[in-house]
Design a protein around this nucleic acid. Structure first.
Lengths: 336, 336
DNA sequence: CTGTTAGCGCATTCAG
DNA sequence: CTGAATGCGCTAACAG
């Protein structure tokens, strides 16, 4: 039943060599005669030997493991990041230990301690909003990379989307497709992503000599808010020909409200969201144009950066803003 | 910079005891004088000592780690399960090593090997559909529990939702609220969940002397399919007063179609889905009544079962079907 | 109660 | 090129 637990010394004696030689052979190390290397490899295969990585870690001093600390697994932002990271890491021989702090600082600290005691070689800290979070400090002794949610310490390495640019991209797309009276339905107040996008939008509008229509103000990241904000907009005397929403969910609510009011999308009014949550944007009729934050890429990049720092390379500290990508669907351009 | 790596023997000598005593003290083991235990604990704290769990694992023979093998991280089914499991496991001192096989058998095998070489104490295999999957075999030497997606080997331990009962629950709810002409919009053909639900629905209908209206047939798990299936239904001469959809996404599509045809929900037609994906069911207007699969509970239970088997308890093999839970919203009952 | 002695399985000096 | 010896940090019998 229980695995025979064939050890390296089993292989060694079976192959008629010493433990040390077997180790070297299996690790492709330095000077071992090709012939013996092959013989050891063969017997290892026969015995279906598998390294005990616990023991290996102990003597090597590295565990081949990285921690993945997330604050909310359910979040739709941390998940793609996690996937990208897991993908890149898993391919590189290293395992990922997952910890969900549930947004609780105590629990986070506990997790960090157990991760550290497990001798992880590096740590990825991923959050689900772009407002900076408290740094874990520089005393951890291992490389740490903050993903999506940046650290508030500029000495840390953080990867986050360039939401200002995302705002520019969105506004420019609407302008390019002929819209002039663009309303911005915002997410929650005091939210960095929303603020950054607003900035980018304003910049792009100014470039074009236009002014944003910004009546409905802030709300939740929900369809409900999208519906009511849009109703407000349509109820006012201000004419609009585009609604730019801070999230796809808000945009979906807006779509329903526009339709209920008899406005056709995109003919009467163009509609856009952010995040490119295809679950929403690709399912509606018409699909909703959005700006993708390249989250999975971000996770992958974070993993690569971690790898690099294992090799001794030092990535530049500070917050690195990653490019976003426009995804056009029917809500801004007919036909498509 | 690098952690001082204070070891147990550092603590021991600092506290003026032997290594062994220090170990026992810190582990709250057998006979150690209360006084010395405290002294050791104190110095350990002073030196901010932290166990090296790699070394500990090596000598104990157990790693305090379980593998979590999933086939699709993005899946909305595996995620809640994973959360529940991570929660229960994390609270119990054990860490979770995450592996995503991306639905690829080769990759899955690779992951299993590295997990095994990492000496995991147990394995959770979670999938995102309820059709049985190939067993990993009984030769792994550690307890394995299949979650959501059951194993095809009855000797394995599997946890999965009771979709037959879910079907009954759904149909009974519609019947209880006075519906008689109920259509079932199904998901993909050859899908176990859909088949099980159909069975339960039929049973409940028969109990009430009713017959299911089942014209539109099978389709994708998408809003699009929900829309077209419902359009078909409404276009036929058969009158209906309820649409029971195999998923919330399908139901949402159905809602749009009903509305487009001028049917009011729930007054003219009641509407239900399965899975209780609140992202959808709670956001629409009205909310969509659904049957929750208790996924997070399932994950938690899986973790507990794993724990139990560490303690030597043997859970009964076979597939255990877990109860589902009706969640009533506005789409089946006015007001609420 | 406490300290001594062995390993856990492997990588790594350093002689041969 | 190969092998005997040493240690990673800790737990687990044993003696004292």
């Amino acid at each position: 039943m229980a695995r025979k637990a064939v050890t390296l010394s089993d292989v060694a004696s079976a192959a008629g060599v010493s433990l040390a030689t077997a180790s070297k052979a299996l690790n492709g190390r330095a000077e071992v005669k090709e012939e013996t290397r092959l013989r050891v490899a063969a017997t290892a295969r026969e015995l279906s030997f598998s390294h005990n990585s616990i023991a290996r870690s102990l003597s090597r001093g590295r565990s081949g493991t990285v921690g993945l600390l997330t604050s909310d697994l359910e979040g739709r932002f941390s998940l793609p990041v996690l996937m990208g990271a897991e993908d890149a890491l898993g391919a590189g021989e290293v395992s990922v230990v997952l910890c969900d702090a549930r947004g609780d600082a105590i629990r986070e600290q506990r997790h960090i301690n157990t991760l550290l005691s497990r001798q992880i070689d590096g740590l990825l800290v991923v959050g689900s909003r772009t407002d900076a979070r408290p740094s874990l400090g520089r005393q951890l002794g291992i490389p740490v990379i903050y993903v999506y949610t940046p650290s508030d310490d500029p000495a840390d390495i953080s990867l986050t989307p360039d939401n200002v640019e995302a705002g520019r991209i969105a506004a420019r797309h609407l302008i390019t497709t002929g819209r002039k009276r663009i309303a911005h339905v915002r997410g929650e107040i005091d939210n960095q992503a929303s603020a950054d996008r607003a900035q980018g939008i304003t910049e792009a509008m100014n470039e074009a000599g236009l002014q944003i229509i910004n009546e409905p103000g802030y709300g939740e990241w929900t369809e409900r808010w999208g519906r009511s904000a849009t109703s407000l907009l349509l109820g006012s005397t201000t004419e609009i020909d585009a609604v730019l929403c801070d999230s796809d969910q808000i945009a979906r609510g807006a779509l329903d409200a526009l339709r209920a009011r008899g406005r056709s999308v995109p003919d009467d009014v163009a509609l856009m969201g952010f995040d490119n949550w295809t679950l929403i944007t690709a399912e509606t009729q018409p699909g909703i144009t959005s700006v993708d934050m390249n989250l999975e890429y971000m996770g992958r990049l974070a993993a690569r950066t971690l790898f690099a720092s294992f090799e001794g390379e030092v990535a530049d500290a500070g917050i690195k803003h990653l490019l976003c990508r426009l995804v056009v669907r029917g809500s801004t351009m007919a036909d498509s």
